[in-house]
């Protein structure tokens, strides 16, 4: 009983993990809504929080579309167990990567330059490359409220010009 259940959830997690979010237009449209209505209004929101909301939106979408409930806790453990070398992982939806523990990130890229060149030359997959959605939030650019500052050399220029004028005035007088 228990084994079938875990086999089922393995399948579910695998499907969730490898789901092609980028090319699911319905999901992408929903994601855009989240950005427009939710993130825009909360400018102080941390990237980790945003990532969490995105992950939750994926869970919600899965439930709505495939009638499958993803348990994020179990999924996180499954990712850890399954994503051994050779398993293409997508860290952006792994909860274990929040909020970007520095050590872990550092180790992730600790391939030496030579190791890296070997992988590239051999045409092998470079580990840890994430897919970043190609989204542009064109209408959301904030307006500038600060006035432009004069650069140090522009201030000095002006000071010198003033001095020159002062000298001219004093010599004229």
């Amino acid at each position: 009983m228990k084994t079938t259940e875990s086999a089922d959830s393995n399948q579910v997690f695998e499907k969730f993990h490898h789901y092609d979010w980028e090319n699911d237009l319905v999901y992408q449209a929903g994601l855009k809504n989240i950005y427009n209505s939710y993130f825009k209004a909360n400018t102080s929101m941390t990237p980790a929080k945003k990532q969490q909301i995105i992950t939750n939106s994926k869970v919600f979408y899965f439930k709505k579309t495939f009638d499958v409930q993803i348990d994020l806790g179990q999924y996180g453990r499954w990712v850890q167990e399954s994503c051994s070398p050779g398993f293409s992982n997508t860290p952006e939806i792994s909860l274990e990567h929040q909020p970007q523990p520095q050590q872990e990130q550092g180790e992730q890229s600790s391939l030496s330059y030579d190791e890296l060149v070997e992988l590239i030359v051999a045409g092998k997959e470079i580990p840890g490359i994430r897919k970043i959605p190609n989204i542009v939030l064109e209408d959301q650019a904030s307006r500038s409220v600060l006035s432009q500052r004069r650069k140090p050399w522009e201030i000095k220029d002006d000071d010198e010009k003033e001095k020159e004028i002062e000298i001219e005035i004093s010599s004229a007088v």
Binding site: L137, E138, Q140, A141
Partner: peptide, 24 residues
């Protein structure tokens, strides 16, 4: 606003108040 230039040939403008994705 901060513009960043990339290995894929693109230039992206990011907004400190928008976050996550570029605004241009």
């Amino acid at each position: 606003h901060v513009a960043a230039s990339s290995g894929d040939g693109t230039i992206k403008l990011f907004d400190l108040h928008v976050g996550t994705y570029p605004v241009a």
